[in-house]
Computed example of a mutant assay.
Amino acid sequence: MQVSIACTDPHMKRGNGDHKNTSSPGNAARAKFRTVAIIARSFGAFAPRHHISLKESTGKLTGMKYRNLGKSGLRVSCLGLGTWVTFGGQITDEEAYSVTRQFNLIPLPLSLSLSLQEAYSVARQFNLIPPVCEQAEYHLFQREKVEVQLPELYHKIGVGAMTWSPLACGIITGKYQNGIPETSRASMKSYQWLKEKIVSEDGRKQQAKLKELGHIAEKLGCTLPQLAVAWCLRNEGVSSVLLGSSSPEQLTENLGSIQFLPKMTSHVVSDIDHILGNKPYSKKEYRS
């Protein structure tokens, strides 16, 4: 598989400086970027040397599926690779969307609380190309926005959905079922909020549900993370699921989720919903 990575930060420029010095934000970012590039290049072995298109080669060798990005007319891979880079203490979203630099996207500071519908209206008012995609958190324990709110926006303005955190910051991997490992993300001081979330009453209930979901994964012949990603992909309203990865092995495992998408039958999804007990309902379903 070929993975494209884009970086738009001004610090990420080539130069002749000392690459061993990672004390400055720019050098630290370059080090992070090189790590992600190594992961991407590790999939070069999958790419054939024949003169065929990327889409064709990716589809044949990895089973990658492509979906419409809302009603924009664009098509994107159903799985994408996302990374985060820290610049001077600030986390910068460096996910690689080659299609999104082509639009007059309107910056949406959190202080403005500007909804996607309002952003669309403003873009139309000033004759700009409006946003065509919403990026939203979506996983087994976070469903409301993607399953209720975004479908309404799709029908109103044709917006698509790219979702992130399919494994809920690692919670759904199952590694926290017996406590918090010392080498895990939740053990770090900067992730104290994640630790509190895991050890809370809701967190303990989630771990119990994950054990039950693990039995479903075993029956399907997949891992719990693969089940979680395939579950996200089973939603046809999701254009692309963005994966995080710290190693080629983890990325390979997550990409393998595509193989289990056909196994996400209505019966399996119903069993998962029964375990989760958090299926949201639309306004129409409430009225009926």
Results as ranks from 00 to 15, higher is better:
R75V: 10
Q102S: 11
S266M: 07
K263F: 10
A6V: 13
R49Q: 13
L128R: 15
A31V: 04
V132H: 02
T22A: 11
G82Y: 11
E196D: 15
G170K: 11
S288F: 04
I275K: 05
G15F: 12
A96K: 01
H215M: 06
S266A: 11
A228E: 08
T100H: 09
I180N: 08
L255G: 15
I129Q: 14
C222F: 07
D18L: 08
S111M: 11
W164I: 08
P25T: 05
I52E: 10
L224R: 03
S42W: 07
G82F: 11
H155M: 04
G89K: 10
K219C: 04
S190L: 06
Q207G: 14
H155A: 10
L153D: 08
V85T: 12
V159S: 00
S77F: 09
T62K: 04
F87W: 06
A228G: 04
H215R: 11
S246K: 10
G174T: 05
E182K: 13
G44W: 01
I52K: 03
P131H: 13
L194W: 12
V99K: 00
Y286L: 15
H274P: 00
Y138I: 01
S115K: 10
S240R: 00
G44V: 02
S115Y: 03
Y97C: 07
K219F: 03
Q135R: 11
D271G: 04
V132G: 01
L150Y: 13
S4F: 12
S288A: 10
S23F: 03
V238D: 05
T83V: 03
V146I: 12
A161K: 05
S247G: 06
R75S: 14
W193S: 15
T8L: 15
G158K: 02
Y281W: 03
G88H: 05
K55M: 10
V268T: 13
S111E: 15
F141I: 12
K205W: 09
Y286N: 03
F103P: 02
A119Y: 00
K195G: 07
P248M: 06
T92W: 00
Y138L: 02
A123L: 06
A28V: 01
